[in-house]
């Protein structure tokens, strides 16, 4: 399975896809007996009606942005990595374990160490998938997808054992030590700095993709494997590179969620994040910088979903429908068959 993206006039296509999905959602809301305009207004109010709400939306966008830009890089290289889900979970566990095992009193080093622990754990989990894929020639979709389930169970196992909080009625770790809590660092907003970090990293990935030899080689590999071989690029090296990078980003996303939102490791804290990151990567046309607005769009939808339910009575699961529709429309608008 390879994706080829129709590059000409991508942005208008995606804008059209988003508009169509909102139109369909409006029709569904109307069918359920509510006014779509009030529902969307309530959603917008809940997502960006106050600095606090907008901060929540930014926080919700952060894991999609980080993991999604990594997934975009993999897809560009023709490596269909569906493993962000597991890499985020393992990354969260890695960050929590690091913070609990090596408590440091001053915040900055403590946070950096814990996040590094998350990134390394995510990367290591991606390395498992990469090595199985490259050594045994198992299709990467299969390996990354199946390892997600293993990862989630491993994190559960850790919470039931060494990482778990004794006596808690739920599978969760003890509260993280205060120095590793991510500060509400964005002035005026109730948000941790994760989104800012995500934007910086996405810019870095974009530079890597378009302005470095490695980025060029991975784009060649994504466009045509025989051409990469002919050009003298090692597809194995490229695969390792993008898998480790995207694993680190997903691990970072898990770490930030643990340190910045939950402040402890909770079973299922990242449920669905990694799969949604794939949606976001495609919504962002596999361009790391365009993943920023794509992640923000999904974050805003989710932040607004509860207020839509409260104020208008449209079930919050309607947001999942909108996300699904957006995904379908974006795929229909951008992905074409390779043989053309």
């Amino acid at each position: 399975m390879r994706f080829a993206i129709a590059r000409d006039s991508l942005l208008p296509r995606i804008a059209l896809a988003v508009a169509l999905s909102l139109l369909c959602a409006a029709a569904l809301i109307a069918l359920s007996g509510h006014n779509p305009f009030t529902a969307f207004a309530a959603m917008l109010d809940g997502a960006a009606g106050s600095p606090h709400q907008f901060g929540v939306a930014l926080n919700k966008s952060t894991p999609y942005l980080l993991a999604g830009s990594g997934v975009a890089l993999c897809f560009r290289a023709g490596v269909i990595n569906i493993g962000a889900e597991g890499q985020i979970a393992v990354g969260g566990a890695g960050a929590a374990a690091t913070a609990l095992a090596w408590p440091i009193d001053s915040p900055l080093p403590a946070i950096l160490l814990a996040l590094a622990g998350g990134a390394v754990a995510g990367s290591a989990w991606a390395a498992v998938a990469a090595s199985i894929h490259l050594a045994r020639h198992v299709h990467e979709v299969l390996v990354t997808l199946l390892l997600n389930f293993v990862a989630v169970l491993l994190v559960q196992q850790a919470l039931a054992g060494p990482l778990g909080e004794f006596g808690a009625g739920f599978l969760q770790s003890p509260k993280m030590p205060a120095p590793v809590w991510l500060p509400r660092a964005i002035p005026g907003l109730d948000a941790h700095p994760g989104f800012i970090l995500g934007v910086v990293l996405a810019a870095g990935l974009s530079f890597l993709l378009w302005r470095t030899r490695f980025g060029f080689s991975l784009r060649v590999a994504g466009a045509s494997r025989p051409a990469a071989l002919y050009a003298g690029f090692s597809v194995a090296r490229i695969t390792w590179g993008v898998m480790l990078l995207s694993g680190a980003l997903a691990g970072l996303a898990g770490g930030i969620e643990v340190l910045g939102v939950q402040r402890r490791l909770i079973e299922g804290f990242s449920l669905g994040f990694g799969f949604k990151a794939v949606t976001v990567a495609l919504l962002g046309a596999l361009e790391p910088l365009a993943v920023v607005p794509a992640a923000l769009f999904v974050g805003l939808l989710e932040a607004g979903s509860l207020s839509m339910q409260r104020q208008v009575g449209v079930p919050s699961s309607m947001v999942a429908v909108i996300e699904g529709l957006t995904m379908l429309f974006v795929l229909a608008a951008t992905v074409r068959r390779r043989t053309a």
Binding site: W210, R211, R213, G215, V220, A223, S224, A227, G232
Partner: peptide, 26 residues
């Protein structure tokens, strides 16, 4: 499929087999 990448530009195709340097100089 092999000697050209059809989705890439003429300039990129001329540089397809360049290996020198970490940065590209567009």
């Amino acid at each position: 499929q092999t000697s050209l990448v059809r989705a890439m530009t003429i300039a990129e195709n001329f540089g397809l087999r360049d290996h020198a340097g970490f940065l590209l100089h567009p």
